[in-house]
């Protein structure tokens, strides 16, 4: 059983989405918005190129919690704010700090960053141990 102390950091998750990740995630999730999979389309609407799905990045935030807690059943709630955009082929890192521990319930403040910018901020995870 994982042990959480107030103020401690959860183990960081670092992942570099490869060039074709957004295509695999589009198929897996059913979100085929062309801003994620079509370089020309993304540029035509003023983006730097294809961008990551926010919900893929949120899944990395979720994974950081379930890996820290020792299984998917421990994650009871996750709320996030999306800011800016993530891009393929650059490392995404998820960090978190335990804010509250009481009666087997843990609250973690967590964020996802890429190139020094938060792409998910003000995220809050609730774990049940």
């Amino acid at each position: 059983m994982a042990d959480f102390q107030m103020g401690e950091q959860i183990r960081e998750v670092k992942v570099t989405p490869d060039k074709y990740l957004t295509v695999r995630y589009a198929g897996a999730s059913g979100d085929f918005n062309p801003i994620h999979i079509d370089e020309e389309f993304a540029r035509a609407v003023g983006l730097p190129g294809r961008i990551l799905h926010g919900l893929w990045t949120m899944a990395q935030v979720a994974r950081a919690q379930t890996e820290a807690a020792g299984g998917p059943e421990h994650l009871r709630r996750l709320s996030v704010q999306f800011r800016g955009m993530g891009v393929p082929e650059q490392e995404v890192s998820v960090s978190g700090t335990v804010r509250e521990v009481s009666d087997g319930r843990v609250v973690v403040d967590t964020v996802a960053e890429q190139a020094g910018k938060q792409i998910i901020r003000n995220a809050e995870a609730e774990l049940e141990l």
């Binding site: 995630y25 897996a28 994974r63 890996e67 998917p72």
Partner: peptide, 17 residues
Amino acid sequence: EKIKEYARAVGESDPVH
């Protein structure tokens, strides 16, 4: 297979998925 496809796309390595 859909669960497995999704789990791989988001980088899950826990074998329960």
